[in-house]
């Protein structure tokens, strides 16, 4: 009887799951297929679903319009800011997890509330400062400002990870005369690697996806890929195929990274509020 009762809902479940998947995936399907259309096909009304695909949009976008260079810029910036966030954040996380000192709670709270601050609040003064220092359109400017969201995420995730490592290991090493730095590097860090990796993936995704700072703080030399995609939007006759080709090139790496870290994604996005 139980089996009979389950028959009905099973089909309902099956259909519902398919709908959920379809809604999630369809925009990507449309993005990729549009990127394979010529401008004439892309501008057919109503849109066509079956057509002869072409890679011309990718060729033109990458090699004639300079999207390749902006992708390289985005990659360099995302890797550098992630590296810097790890170098600064991992020792800080170790201190927050292992040492007792006054003001620790406040400090931790301050690191974390940076997640709440709207980037536009920082964009205005950062633009003026960068302009005065001649730092507009330089990679380093974005690498530094992205620390405002990457450093908190690294500190949050890695602190959590360090706390999970038994303190006995530290103690044993300290009796042998190891310095705190050695303890962190040789004992705790290898064990904390999963957390470090996840925080690095997050930091990379956030930096790679960012548009506003890229738009305001770069012009040509350090232009990021999302800023480039937006600059196709000017003019009357929009090159839809090229815009979608550029979008596809931007989105594919993040999706791969996100799928790799999918188990930890929710935890990272809620900054640990949900385990």
């Amino acid at each position: 009887m139980a089996a009979a009762r389950r028959q009905g809902p099973m089909w309902g479940q099956f259909a519902l799951l398919l709908v959920i998947m379809l809604v999630c995936v369809f925009p990507f399907y449309w993005m990729v297929t549009t990127s394979l259309k010529t401008q004439i096909v892309a501008l057919e009304a109503p849109p066509v679903w079956v057509f002869e695909p072409t890679l011309a949009n990718y060729r033109e976008a990458l090699f004639e319009d300079g999207v390749l260079r902006t992708l390289i810029n985005s990659l360099v910036i995302a890797i550098c800011t992630t590296g810097l966030a790890l170098i600064l954040g991992v020792p800080a996380a170790f201190a927050l997890a292992r040492f007792e000192f006054r003001g620790k709670k406040d400090l931790w709270f301050w690191f974390i509330t940076n997640r709440m601050v709207s980037p536009i609040v920082l964009a205005l003064p950062f633009f003026l400062i960068a302009r005065n220092l001649g730092l507009l359109d330089k990679h380093i400017t974005l690498i530094l400002i992205y620390l405002t969201f990457n450093l908190p995420i690294v500190i949050w995730i890695v602190t959590d990870q360090f706390r999970g490592i038994p303190y006995d290991l530290d103690e044993a090493a300290r009796l042998e005369g190891a310095s705190q730095f050695t303890i962190m590097r040789k004992i705790c860090l290898p064990l904390a690697m999963p957390g470090v990796a996840v925080s690095a993936i997050f930091s990379f995704i956030f930096s790679w996806n960012e548009l506003m700072f890229g738009l305001i703080l770069t012009r040509t030399e350090a232009k990021t890929a999302p800023a480039m995609a937006v600059s196709f939007m000017e003019g009357y006759n929009l090159p839809y195929g090229k815009i979608m080709a550029t979008s596809t090139l931007i989105v594919i790496p993040v999706l791969i990274f996100a799928l790799l870290a999918s188990k930890q994604l929710v935890r990272g996005l809620t900054m640990g509020a949900v385990k």
Binding site: L17, I20, M21, C24, V25, P27, F28, W30, M31, T34, I205, W208, N209, L211, P226, A229, V230, M233, L238, Y240, I243, M244, S247, I250, V251, V254, L255, F257, A258, L259, S262, L265, L269
Partner: peptide, 23 residues
Amino acid sequence: TRLSLVLPMATTYAVVGLLGQVM
């Protein structure tokens, strides 16, 4: 389904806007 749920939230916000323009 769980894997496909991961895709929208990782998508570059700017690309979501561009997709909106097209769709």
